[in-house]
């Protein structure tokens, strides 16, 4: 699928709540690549991601998607550019997998209309991409947490957006399911050319899967760019407050944490 690639730029973004403040002067996320936002708990990873997704009330002229100011876009227009995958969905009603995934089409439909066969086709394709075709008519409540994570990704694929933002897509998953999700994210960047931004807890996962890293601490960017440049002993010790050793193996950097 050929989609235009979007570069994301952040300029003088300030966002605060309670005693926390996010304060970013200038930051960019390369088009068609995977960028991981890393940092300790409470650093503001999810807040930054939600700002990028346009879900928090940000000021105008702070976040641009290929020079479009997202604070000026209306919901449907924004949702045709940005797909957002939350950590967990809340479920009040037990929809089937297909019914749930087709909701991703809302931004393409007018207010008083129903999804057409074209929309269901798109939902089916999304399910096929994440490998859950056979789950289409299963109720969501029967799925494991890993499968639900995949369904959430499928829903934002049905949204057909050039940009995909994922909030901690691997937390609470075992190693194999976590890798499965990250492999899927890789294919999305590689095959579909999507610009992908995700938050990650695990710095080793970030080191191995991301093309680009953004490391934040207390709402400020400490370093960004190539993983080899960001993941240095000094920075890791400063940001996470632990002693580490680095191990470079077959073109990848591994971080060994000393207890």
């Amino acid at each position: 699928m050929d989609e235009t690639q979007f570069l994301i730029e952040v300029k003088k973004l300030r966002f605060s709540y309670d005693s926390f403040q996010l304060d970013i002067d200038s930051l960019s996320f390369p088009a068609g690549k995977i960028t991981a936002i890393i940092g300790p708990n409470g650093a503001g990873k999810t807040t930054l991601l939600k700002c990028l997704a346009g879900l928090l009330p940000i000021e105008k002229k702070t976040i641009f998607y290929d020079s479009q100011d997202i604070a000026r876009l209306k919901e449907p227009a924004r949702a045709r550019i940005i797909g957002y995958v939350p950590q967990e969905h809340s479920l009040a009603f037990n929809y089937s997998v297909l019914e749930f995934v087709v909701m991703g089409r809302a931004a393409h439909l007018s207010l008083f209309s129903l999804p057409s066969s074209r929309d269901f086709e798109s939902a089916h394709q999304a399910l096929e991409f994440v490998g859950l075709s056979s789950f289409a008519s299963r109720p969501l409540s029967e799925l494991s947490s890993g499968e639900r994570r995949l369904v959430l990704i499928a829903r934002s694929l049905a949204q057909e957006t050039p940009v995909l933002l994922l909030d901690e897509p691997t937390t609470f998953l075992d190693i194999r399911h976590g890798l499965e999700i990250l492999g899927l994210v890789r294919r999305l960047a590689g095959q579909k050319g999507k610009t992908i931004v995700l938050t990650l807890h695990d710095i080793n996962q970030a080191a191995q899967f991301a093309d680009n890293l953004v490391m934040i601490k207390q709402g400020k960017v400490v370093a960004s760019g190539d993983p080899f440049r960001v993941l240095t002993e000094e920075l890791l010790e400063d940001v996470y407050g632990v002693k580490v050793s680095l191990l470079d193996l077959s073109g990848r950097r591994f971080i060994v944490i000393h207890s």
């Binding site: 939600k50 997704a53 879900l55 919901e75 449907p76 924004r78 949702a79 045709r80 940005i82 797909g83 957002y84 939350p86 969905h89 809340s90 009040a92 009603f93 909701m103 991703g104 809302a106 931004a107 829903r155 949204q159």
Partner: peptide, 11 residues
């Protein structure tokens, strides 16, 4: 019937 945040992210 989804959470408000999910609804908004879907447009």
């Amino acid at each position: 019937s989804l959470s408000e945040e999910e609804g908004r992210s879907l447009g």
